[in-house]
Simulated assay, not measured.
Amino acid sequence: MADHQETLDLRSYAALGDSFTEGLDDPGPDGVFAGWADRLAGLLAERRPDGDFRYANLAVRGRLLDQIVAEQVPQVRRTGPDLVTFCAGGNDILRPGSDPDEVAERFEAAVLELREAAGTVLICTGFDTRGVPVLKHLRGRIATYNGHLRAIADRNGCAVADLWSLRAVHDRRAWSDDRLHLSPEGHQRVALLAARALGIPVEQDPDAPWPARHVPSPAELRRENIQWARSYLLPWVGRRLRGESSGDHVEAKRPELLPL
């Protein structure tokens, strides 16, 4: 693994990926989605009292791995940031008939490019979907992909934010109403996890227990699941059948390395 102590002096950071890294369902004060990558950038900027820190977020919702490689990786080669976070392939794995072995091969090819252009590369494993409706059936495929990602990180000296092991996201409050994207608190937990993976000390524990809450009854859960299916699952399936993406006509929110 790479020596992550050097990341304490990071001056620039580019985030690559899809809706997870774009920050969906974590609205910022300006109305633009923030998300874990923006929150991580804030933590890194705080460590530079001279204010010399630049950040780009190239992620766009709905993007597949090949689209991320074609659209976002060249930006990293052009700008050469000190840190890149590269979280991709999740949308590929969700597609029927996808092969996690083949997706991982393309992911590693992109990592090789990024390692040539950036000082440090951090990748994220996929979440454990055992408690998520519909997605729980993909748990084995996600686990296989995660095994590849860890091997890729070992071979190429990448840091790893291990989302599979993050128990805090097993709580419903870590997720927004669509159950596909993190809530603001969920994004904060991931930002803390990523900081730790880089060797950045943080005061809060990303896996700190949640406050006690009301536990829904089986009847309440059924009603919630029906409402979720109507509001989110069926439209999502419809877009898949029509070949549409939530990211159609969406551009990166922060395409250049600019002061934070």
Rank of each mutant, 00 (worst) to 15 (best):
Y145T: 01
H148F: 07
G186C: 08
A159S: 12
R172S: 08
Q188N: 13
V169E: 13
G147R: 09
D154V: 07
G147T: 05
H181C: 04
A195I: 07
L163C: 01
S183Y: 02
N146G: 03
L149C: 02
V160I: 14
A191L: 13
S176A: 15
A161C: 15
G199I: 02
W175R: 08
A197C: 12
Q188F: 12
W175A: 10
L149I: 03
V202T: 14
D162H: 11
L198S: 00
R155M: 06
P184D: 03
G186E: 07
P201A: 10
L166V: 05
N156M: 12
L192P: 04
L149R: 10
G157M: 01
A161Y: 01
I152E: 15
L149P: 06
G147N: 14
I200R: 14
Y145M: 15
L166F: 10
R172P: 03
A174Q: 11
A195K: 02
G186M: 07
D162I: 03
D162E: 13
L149E: 06
S176N: 00
G199Q: 00
R189A: 06
W175K: 01
A151T: 13
W164N: 06
W164C: 01
L193Q: 02
L182C: 14
L149V: 02
R167V: 03
R179M: 15
W175E: 01
I200W: 13
V160S: 13
G199M: 09
A161M: 11
D162N: 09
V169F: 14
D154Q: 12
H181I: 04
E185T: 06
L163D: 05
S183V: 03
H170E: 15
I200S: 14
D177S: 15
A153R: 08
S176K: 01
R173G: 08
N156V: 08
A174C: 15
R150F: 03
L166N: 07
A195C: 00
A161P: 04
A191Q: 12
R150K: 00
I152V: 15
D171W: 04
L180S: 11
H187K: 00
G199C: 05
I152D: 12
R155W: 07
N146R: 08
S165F: 04
V169L: 15
A161I: 03
Y145I: 10
A194W: 00
R150V: 04
A174T: 07
R189N: 02
